[in-house]
Nucleic acid binder design. Structure first.
Length: 603
RNA sequence: GCUCCUGUAGUCUAGCCUGGAUAGGACGCAAGCCUCCGGAGCUUGUGACCGGGGUUCAAAUCCCCGCAGGGGCGCCA
């Protein structure tokens, strides 16, 4: 059932409406759907207030039996608006059984005409440099890339998660050079990517005193390009350290990739594309011999230097071509920081100049800068926040909070829960803000469990599990045989196994029409909206929309929890409420999962 | 200098694309709520659309001019 089209159908009998004007009122007290009558004022030569009044009068006159108003229980005119009020009992009877049946698949495959899922999509994210460990900016990148991939997959697309390793260049040589000069063959005793990064710092320090080092690094790059054995050997060794460290961090975050690309493999392969373009007259040669592109609305862009070597743009040109060739992509998404907005504008413009058939199928998912309380993070100024340090820090802080509340847990259990909660706090904080915006990351504030946080949402989930657990314990064996219906909704480990989750629950008989209180109705409406929310979030590459929704749902649940007793209620109503909270549990679980966050049963 | 983006309470943000009814939420601050299913909670109060024009019956939203902050403007990646 769709509220919008239901309202449209009812209205059309009385007014030549423009369906697109139907809106959800900002204030819930004004109904669930509203139609503003301003636009009809001229044609009907009547004040919008009177139009609204007239329509509602004829509606109610015809429908003494309320059946025809379904799914609404009330339609009224307020000023120039016609407001529709949902019948919560009807909606609940409609929606809750669907969730109980579909469980974690509720909302899957949301292919509306507007956001029809592309068949095959590639999401490229992470894109680390191999000369130093991941930092705070990468955490935002990873959180967004991973969540968007999950959302698109859930919406019905085949998603390939890819990662381009920037593994060559003078910055890489700097770490190598420092290790060669001052490392004395030292083997890593710390996390291996940090070990590499240590030498990058060493280089920068030494280079401040000794300017010649910059030239030495350039010289090392030339050797690398010439294929010098020693240099290549060192390069392989140190990159292997970097990768093994990165993988550890990806693992902690629950991120994995289907395809890795390496800059060193492709950095020269764009030349042919450029020369081809030159032959076809798309590009031109500069006086000095460099190949440049004149892009409408942009400054001329060099694509090949006079000496024939390629630039950053050249390899990106090639990499995109490679991706489409290898995978027949319907869309290629680059998750890259907003400082590269211009680069991608130019890159996509080049695709169009070259008339590639897939030229319109690339998008740059741009995300804003991450600021610390005391300004922007910069690796050279030592204000950089290391990704692993942050993760550890979050877990440590979570540990303190857990210990405040439980003194009977083993050290191991505390550590386990702390990581789940700490990561939730971190990821949720990064995802709740619209990707396009710059954001402020305050490590202390982010771990606070008050407010719009991951742990707040997790807590709602754990609380529901707790109630269901208690119910199950109290009624173990007693009602189970006589009333299998009520136990069909007890929590299970549905979080991990969709196959189990999608198994239809057997003959559930709780009567959702008993749920008519405002707090119950609010929850039902939110549950009803979930498929739309995930569909929109996927179509617009905006996990933040889902994060906001989950906050609303968790909040609505907490309000309900305080207003409505569950287990002490008489059986029929109790069962209905158990069904309701179980549905909330499922949606919270799925929603958090799509943000890359776990939904623990206890915390 | 050119160009792109962003300005919402003490702080962080939603809404802006697709203009409409009292600008939503969080932190903070102030005051309440446990004989009750987990108080990591709930209730109440406090307080905001950068400035100026324009378009419109209607502007936080669209357009223009300012002001402020940030990004970019490499034959770096």
């Amino acid at each position: 059932m769709d509220i919008r089209s239901s309202a449209a159908t009812i209205l059309k009998k009385h007014l030549a409406i423009d369906e697109s004007l139907l809106e959800v009122p900002k204030d819930k007290a004004l109904g669930d759907m509203a139609y503003p009558c301003f636009s009809h004022a001229k044609a009907l030569k009547k004040a919008p207030q009177l139009i609204a009044k007239g329509v509602v009068e004829s509606l109610t006159a015809q429908n003494q039996n309320k059946q025809k108003l379904y799914p609404f229980c009330r339609i009224e005119a307020v000023g120039p608006y016609i407001n529709f009020f949902m019948d919560p009992a009807a909606l609940g009877s409609d929606v809750l059984p669907i969730i109980a049946k579909k469980k974690l698949d509720y909302g899957r495959g949301m292919a509306t005409p507007k956001n029809a899922p592309k068949k095959t999509l590639m999401v490229e994210y992470a894109s680390p440099n191999t000369n130093k460990p991941l930092h705070l900016g990468h955490l935002r990148n990873l959180a967004i890339g991973h969540s968007v991939s999950s959302l698109l997959q859930f919406a019905g697309a085949k998603v390939i998660q890819s990662n381009i390793n920037n593994d060559r260049g003078v910055h890489i040589c700097k770490s190598m050079l420092a290790y060669q000069r001052w490392g004395k063959g030292e083997q890593p005793t710390i996390k291996t990517d940090h070990f590499v990064g240590k030498y990058y710092v060493v280089f920068n320090k030494k280079a401040e005193e000794n300017k010649a080092l910059e030239g030495d690094a350039q010289e090392m790059l030339r050797k690398w390009e010439a294929g010098d054995k020693e240099t290549r050997k060192l390069w392989k060794l140190m990159n292997a350290w970097a990768y093994s460290g990165f993988e550890e961090t990806y693992g902690k975050l629950g991120v994995s990739f289907d395809k890795y690309y390496y800059e060193s493999d492709i950095y020269e392969d764009g030349k042919k594309i450029v020369l081809d373009g030159l032959k076809k007259g798309v590009f031109r040669k500069n006086d000095d011999g460099a190949v440049v592109a004149d892009i409408p609305g942009h400054d001329p862009k060099v694509l090949l230097r006079a000496d024939g070597t390629s630039v950053y743009m050249t390899q990106d040109l090639y990499l995109a071509t490679l991706k489409f060739k290898e995978y027949q992509l319907d869309q290629s998404i680059h998750v890259v920081g907003s400082e590269q907005n211009y680069h991608f504008q130019v890159l996509f413009a080049l695709f169009k100049m070259l008339k590639y058939p897939w030229a319109g199928k690339c998008s740059h998912l741009s995300y804003g800068m991450v600021y610390l309380p005391h300004g922007k993070m910069k690796s050279r100024e030592g204000t950089v926040v290391d990704a692993d340090d942050i993760i550890q820090n979050m877990a440590d802080l979570a540990k303190v909070e857990i210990r405040k509340r439980h003194n009977d847990l083993s050290e191991e259990e505390v550590g386990k829960r702390a990581m789940v909660i700490g990561l939730a706090a971190l990821k949720f904080f990064l995802l709740k803000i619209d990707p396009s915006r710059d954001m402020h990351f305050d490590p202390k504030e982010s771990i606070s469990f008050d407010g719009e946080t991951g742990p707040y949402v997790q807590y709602a989930h754990a609380r529901i599990c707790s109630v269901l657990r208690k119910f199950r314990q109290e009624h173990a064996g007693k009602e189970q045989k006589s009333k299998p219906s009520s136990t069909a909704i007890i929590p299970s480990k549905t979080a991990i196994m969709p196959s189990k989750a999608s198994r239809p629950s057997t003959a559930f008989k709780a009567d959702a029409s008993l749920l008519v209180l405002p707090a119950e109705a609010a929850l039902i409406k939110l549950l009803h909206a979930f498929p739309d929310v995930v569909g929109e979030a996927a179509a617009n590459y905006r996990p933040s929309a889902l994060a906001r929704y989950l906050l609303d749902l968790a909040q609505a649940f907490n309000e309900f929890y305080h207003a409505c007793p569950i287990l002490t209620e008489e059986q029929k109503l109790r069962d209905a409420r158990l069904l309701l909270i179980d549905c909330v549990r499922v949606v919270l679980d799925r929603g958090l999962n799509l943000l890359g966050i776990q939904a623990p049963e206890e915390m």
